[in-house]
Amino acid sequence: MSASNLEKVLKGGNFAVTSECGPPRGADAEVVSKKGSYLKGYVDGVNVTDNQTSVVRMSSIAAAVLLKQMGFDPIMQMVCRDRNRIALQSDLLGAAALGLDNVLCLSGDHQKFGDHPTAKNVFDIDSMQLIQTIKQLRDEGRFLGGEEVKGRPDMFIGCAENPFADPFEIRAMRLAKKAACGAQFVQTQCIFNVPKFEKWMEMVRDLGVHEKIYILAGVTPCKSIGMARYMQKSVPGMDVPEELITRLKGVPKENVAEEGIKICVETIEQMRAIKGVAGVHIMAIEWEQKVAGIVEAAKLYPRPAI
């Protein structure tokens, strides 16, 4: 077992709570510590995104180390868009040497959406192959090239899954594949359509995948009707039902944010009742200060001390 706090929390049978911290678009370490300060004590692990939406930001390794220094258990995200297998393995060794214990493997958003759409992408390997790569370094102590790794990176390996993307019929199989590759935990895309998520979980359970991998259900509080509408219309693979928008529209304007949080807390409660869900991943996009309140309202505070 790695030194990961998140792994210990999950293995101890606790309902885990993770959140997210997007590194800043600059070299200011203060921004990281400020975002971190909102989450301190309320989460078991904190994701550090890797140039999310293909917008250049402080590297996930660096920001994760800054959070580690604050006492967090960072989950370093790694995308396959910007690095080939040489750089990915190298960075993984570096991350382990700096004391990072969790890694989340992703393909990465296409660069077309970011601030450098004219960039060349890499995609030497895909997210499943990255999972296999890390597992090989850790468990077999061999690089992809076959040479021995002197000092294995002991990482708790995670991945992501979007139960709402198409084709739906293979989304549970895709998770099974990731588990077979060696992923130990998964964080899902933001869940707004609970019935569809339940259906996906049913398919996951049918394949017995929930027994092979810890499933953390992704939740996001909607700040405003505009944000909900944006996610519904403009974010590929996001499923925001019209009822959610109707509900937000049903409250006075000054109470929309509060209602959004209330919906998020209710979703967490629904998640806890679903067999096979091992925790929640709260993505409060540029709204990190609300995470503590959500965790408290969902009666998930205090977090287990391990």
């Binding site: 192959q129 993307a165 084709p167 293979i170 590929p236």
Partner: peptide, 9 residues
Amino acid sequence: LFNGPCGGS
């Protein structure tokens, strides 16, 4: 990608 669609499909 070699092992299936990404989350953006």
